[in-house]
């Protein structure tokens, strides 16, 4: 029996399970190649800096707006409940804990998955289907090191920076709201806010951001690198990059929270 017939005879569910494990294996090989190439010279500094600019600097406006609004809204939503118990003074620490532990890493990651992940998926997908990646290969250039290592590394480094920036802006948003209602000073607000944040909270947030950045980088690069079917494949690479990155981010969130809560 030919392989085509075997494929046709195979039940859909079996074919899907096979496909899942094949993709899983391919991603594992892709990640292994990333670590192998990442530590070999020469380093593509120029492209790495360009990617940091794309990932970090170009996301600043969106991170600022969302961070600020998150801080304001979270404060506004929490105030009625806290005032029922007469503890509105807890607002700064409540907001800071929520922002540092959960909101900032998630918001920064979701913004990057949507904005940068889709862009990387589409850019690499487009380069793949127009043979630009093959053109690098035949020019004796290592396209994996130039395109993938730089993007994944930039994402892994810039996301934690964006996350801390997002946390700071979120707290600033909260401060403006608290100051408007309770006339709290900036120093008193931040003293109160950060008094409750422990070293473990920063470690959790940093771990999350590094892992989310790496996940978005790997997923979107993998999708772009393996794009097929012309322009349709480019769109699919961008779309799947975002969906899979977001899905994995939420799964990682659950796992990391459980791990760090067991340490706490």
């Amino acid at each position: 029996m030919s392989s085509t017939n075997e494929k046709q005879d195979k039940p859909v569910i079996t074919a899907k399970i096979d496909g899942f494990f094949i993709t899983f294996y391919d991603i594992a090989v892709f990640i292994a190649r990333f670590f192998r190439e990442a530590f070999r010279p020469p380093v593509e500094w120029g492209e790495f800096v360009r990617q940091c600019y794309q990932v970090g600097y170009k996301s600043l406006a969106l991170v600022t707006v969302t961070g600020f609004i998150t801080g304001v809204v979270f404060t506004e939503q929490s105030r009625p409940t806290l005032s029922e118990f007469g503890v509105t003074a807890w607002l700064p620490s409540l907001v800071a804990i929520a922002v540092v532990r959960a909101l900032a890493p998630l918001i920064a990651a979701l913004i990057c998955a949507g904005k940068v992940g889709s862009s990387i998926g589409a850019e690499l997908g487009s380069m793949k289907v127009t043979e630009q990646i093959d053109a690098m290969e035949v020019s004796a250039i290592n396209p994996f090191r130039y395109l993938i290592v730089t993007r994944v590394t930039a994402m892994t480094i810039c996301l934690p920076l964006l996350m801390f920036y997002n946390a700071l802006i979120g707290c600033m948003g909260s401060y403006f709201d608290v100051h408007a209602h309770e006339q709290t000073s900036l120093i008193a607000f931040f003293d109160n806010a950060f008094a409750q944040i422990t070293f473990l909270d920063y470690t959790t947030a940093l771990t999350k951001a590094i892992l989310y950045g790496f996940t978005i980088g790997i997923v979107s690069c993998y999708q772009g690198w393996n794009a097929t079917q012309g322009t349709m494949g480019v769109g699919k690479a961008a779309n799947v990059s975002v969906i899979v990155s977001m899905f994995l981010i939420f799964i990682e969130e659950v796992i990391i929270v459980h791990v760090f809560n067991s340490i706490r």
Partner: peptide
């Protein structure tokens, strides 16, 4: 290697 599509980096 000269590609059919030219494959220039756009």
């Amino acid at each position: 290697f000269s590609f059919q599509s030219s494959a220039l980096y756009d």
